[in-house]
């Protein structure tokens, strides 16, 4: 399982060298705006966005929206994690014959299309948004768990059985740890999807949250305030991803390029 990954994980040598291009792009953008080449009502300078963002950070109203988004994001992800891992394990151990085709039917459905149904069933509040996050995030975790658990080296299982471990015990002492690298990769994908999904759900129908902030600003053409929620969700996504990478490095000390 490759831990290296362009979007995170890989330890880039020379952070300065890798941040430089981003700085160049931001500076060029800044310069274009300062020079008056684009109307500030269409594209605000990055410095203006950044200053507004910093100004808003201590604002209780803004933080309320951030908190609403985080509640939906994290609870949806947590439910998806619990459900994905348990269903994935179940499907890989025997239940596969029944669950596999069901998963095959459900996985390629664009979950966002289910959102109206969730709104009708769960209402306009947290529940429908959390449901959508779960529906979107559960499949990467489920499939990763399923594949990880299916590809457990049989001789690891044999070694455990021969050592007197029961079938049930090997699920927790062999199958789950073996599948862990794969599960964490699934989590990484699911986490990004959760960020995206919660934001979209809030844009489509909500009265609070970061997505709603963007829509509210768009209605009154406040371009700077449209960029702020985007910067915020991007930052949240990157921070959560960094947290996941840290957890991963913690949990996978023994895994890696053995053999």
């Amino acid at each position: 399982m490759s831990a290296s990954n362009i979007f995170a994980g890989e330890r880039l040598r020379g952070t300065a060298a890798s941040v430089l291009p981003l700085a160049v792009i931001l500076l060029a953008w800044e310069a274009v705006c300062r020079a008056g080449l684009v109307a500030p009502t269409l594209l605000p300078a990055p410095s203006v966005v950044l200053l507004r963002w910093i100004a808003l950070l201590p604002d209780p109203d803004f933080l309320h929206h951030v908190a609403q988004t985080m509640i939906r994001l994290l609870s949806g992800f947590a439910i998806a994690l619990a459900a994905g891992v348990s269903i994935g394990l179940l499907a890989s151990r025997g239940g596969g014959g029944l669950l596999e085709p069901v998963i095959r039917v459900l996985a390629p459905i664009p979950k966002i299309a289910l959102y109206p149904a969730f709104v009708l069933i769960f209402g306009f509040d947290h529940a429908s948004k959390i449901a959508l996050v779960v529906a979107d995030a559960v499949f990467p975790i489920l499939l990763a768990t399923f594949h990880g658990a299916r590809s457990v080296e049989p001789k690891l299982l044999w070694s455990a059985w021969a050592a007197g471990a029961s079938r049930r015990a090997t699920i927790f002492t062999v199958v789950l740890p073996s599948a862990l690298p794969s599960i964490l990769t699934g989590c990484k994908i699911a986490l990004l999807i959760s960020c995206v999904t919660v934001f979209l759900a809030e844009m489509i129908s909500s009265t609070d949250g970061l997505g709603h902030l963007l829509i509210r600003s768009a209605r009154s053409f406040r371009i700077v305030d449209m960029f702020v929620p985007l910067v915020t969700i991007s930052t949240i996504g990157l921070l959560l991803n960094a947290a996941l990478v840290a957890v991963r490095n913690r949990l996978l000390v023994g895994h890696g390029n053995h053999r």
Partner: peptide, 21 residues
């Protein structure tokens, strides 16, 4: 009828648990 601790295997691939010390 199945594996048991009276017969201990040693495999060519070692089959150690990589996540355990």
């Amino acid at each position: 009828t199945g594996p048991g601790p009276d017969r201990g295997p040693v495999f060519q691939e070692f089959a150690l648990f990589p996540w355990k010390t």
